[in-house]
Simulated scan of single mutants.
Amino acid sequence: MNVGWGRPFDEPIEIPGGELATLLDAGRYIAKLSLRDAITEVMIDARVHPRPKGGCSEG
């Protein structure tokens, strides 16, 4: 079983020019973004994948 930073996502995240398949991929991608770009990415994700009112989507 692959765990930790290298564990594959259930569904890769599509990004311009490729995809993010693991948490490590996502971390490296975010680290390369400027703060403004990172905030924009979070805002877009929140609009595309809204969370239930009142908090976390896990449960």
Rank of each mutant, 00 (worst) to 15 (best):
I30W: 10
P8Y: 05
E11H: 07
I44W: 03
P16V: 03
R7S: 13
I44Q: 05
A21G: 06
V48Y: 08
L33G: 07
R36I: 10
L35E: 06
L20P: 01
R7I: 11
E11A: 12
I15Y: 03
T22K: 01
P50T: 13
K53H: 04
Y29P: 04
M43V: 02
I30S: 08
K32V: 02
L20F: 07
D45E: 12
R51W: 14
A46C: 12
L33V: 00
E41T: 10
E58T: 12
D25T: 02
G55T: 11
E58N: 07
E19L: 07
K32G: 15
A38H: 00
F9S: 02
L23Y: 03
G6L: 13
D45V: 08
P16G: 10
C56V: 10
R7K: 14
L23K: 04
K53C: 06
K32W: 04
E14Y: 03
D10V: 13
A26N: 11
L20K: 00
I13D: 00
R7A: 14
I39L: 13
I39P: 06
R51I: 15
I44D: 05
I30N: 07
I13C: 12
V42W: 14
G55H: 04
K32E: 11
P50M: 15
P12N: 09
G55P: 04
G55F: 08
L35I: 01
D37F: 12
F9G: 02
R47D: 15
P16E: 11
R7M: 14
R51D: 11
G54T: 09
S34R: 07
G17Q: 04
E41V: 11
P16H: 06
P12T: 09
S57I: 12
P12I: 09
S34W: 03
V42K: 12
A26L: 15
H49N: 12
I44R: 06
E41Q: 13
D10P: 02
R28M: 10
I15E: 03
D45A: 13
G17L: 07
T22Y: 02
L20H: 01
P52D: 01
G27S: 04
P16Q: 09
G17I: 05
G27R: 08
P16D: 11
G55D: 07
I30A: 13
R7L: 14
L33C: 13
P52F: 05
T40C: 11
G27L: 02
D45P: 02
I13W: 01
G17C: 09
G27H: 04
R51Y: 13
F9D: 01
G17P: 03
S34A: 14
A26I: 06
K53F: 07
P12M: 10
A38Y: 00
I30V: 12
V42L: 10
L23V: 06
E14C: 05
D10H: 04
E58D: 08
S34H: 05
S34K: 13
P12R: 03
L20I: 05
R7T: 14
F9Q: 00
G6V: 03
P8S: 14
G18P: 02
D25V: 04
E58K: 06
I13Y: 01
D10G: 09
R51P: 05
D45F: 15
R7F: 09
